[in-house]
């Protein structure tokens, strides 16, 4: 408006130097170009997501059409006979992710409590970054460590002990020869999920108003009573959101699990036996997948992973938004 008014005054027009007029039109072009570029980039992000869904579902369509929902419950995976069932892998995915979360959530919350309420400033500024460093270790290195360092230790030391103490539980069956096992994969996944939960929870705990915790202390609560009565209840939704983010990470991790779980073909109750997960089954067949139906079956697995992964992510965000907590992307 103002611009147009200025342009309508002849004297002003004459006075405007050539470079000034040029700068104004350059401004207008620059604005339009920048805005267009930004819109294109934003559209690209949305289109990319749509393309991933479209392409993955499209490539899976022949397997979906042939095997239908029975794919989810059929146990055999025999590429040579064109027999594909995901039951073993899906069972493994659920078991490993839940077990990893079962360890990582209490441990991560405890670390977050240590970092936000217990540790003195200097300790906090050292331990905090170290815990986040865990998240920076590439999954392939963690898996490599799991199969070469952790695997020999488990059957020799950990499994006999667990079997001896908790042997009445079927998940802690007789120790096995090989160290590649569901337990190994669970431990590696725990290491990967732990820093996510610890760092988000720590940020959450730091947002608890000081008056509340101080008030509880002034009423005579012990430190733990403050945590249980004030800190945890006021951040519970955020912790659940963080757990869902961790769950999404654990469900979708292919490489480290493929390295450590031992590519088992059967469902076993024991954590010491080998197993498989959907993501790692895909990763294990990266070079052998030449048959069209096999490739399509792998894409079917990817569709399942994509759905669970996106649902876990959406759930985390819905919880976070509903309770107005900020769950940053874990870096």
């Amino acid at each position: 408006m103002l611009e147009r008014a200025v342009q309508q005054v002849p004297a002003r027009r004459v006075a405007a130097s050539r470079s000034g007029a040029f700068a104004r039109s350059a401004d207008r072009i620059g604005d339009a170009v920048l805005q267009a570029l930004c819109v294109i980039a934003a559209l690209l992000a949305i289109l990319l997501l749509a393309a991933i869904v479209y392409e993955v579902v499209g490539s899976a369509s022949s397997a979906i059409g042939r095997y239908g929902l029975g794919f989810l419950f059929h146990r055999a995976w025999k590429p040579n006979f064109e027999v594909f069932g995901a039951a073993v892998a899906l069972f493994g995915t659920v078991v490993t992710s839940l077990a990893a979360l079962l360890i990582a959530v209490p441990l991560g919350v405890a670390i977050a409590l240590f970092l936000s309420t217990l540790a003195p400033g200097r300790v906090r500024s050292v331990i905090g970054p170290l815990v986040e460093m865990l998240a920076a270790i590439p999954s392939v290195i963690l898996g490599f460590w799991g199969i070469l360092v952790l695997a020999p230790l488990l059957p020799a030391h950990v499994e006999p002990f667990l079997h001896g103490v908790f042997g009445f539980l079927p998940i802690f069956g007789a120790p096995e020869q090989s160290g590649a096992s569901v337990l190994n994969a669970v431990l590696i996944l725990t290491i990967m999920v732990l820093p996510i939960i610890a760092s988000i929870s720590r940020d959450l705990f730091l947002t608890v108003p000081r008056e509340l915790t101080d008030g509880a202390r002034a009423l005579g609560s012990t430190r733990w009573e403050v945590v249980r009565g004030v800190v945890l209840p006021s951040t519970a939704s955020g912790i659940i959101a963080a757990s869902f983010l961790g769950l999404g990470r654990a469900l979708g991790e292919a490489i480290a699990v493929a390295q450590t779980i031992g590519a088992g073909k059967a469902i076993s109750a024991s954590f010491f036996a080998t197993g498989n997960t959907a993501a790692s089954l895909i990763a294990q067949q990266y070079f052998g997948a030449t048959d069209r139906m096999q490739v399509s079956a792998l894409f079917y697995l990817a569709v399942i992973l994509l759905v669970i992964g996106l649902v876990a992510n959406l759930a985390a965000q819905a919880i976070a938004r509903r309770f107005d907590v900020h769950v940053a992307l874990a870096r």
């Binding site: 934003a42 393309a51 991933i52 490489i255 990817a302």
Partner: peptide, 25 residues
């Protein structure tokens, strides 16, 4: 908000699925 949602969902896509997507594409 829509763009942010798309980016957050992209972040949630398992990396192995990204790998398969690139393979197909």
């Amino acid at each position: 908000r829509l763009v942010r949602l798309a980016l957050d969902l992209l972040y949630g896509v398992p990396t192995i699925v990204t790998g398969l997507f690139i393979f197909a594409l």
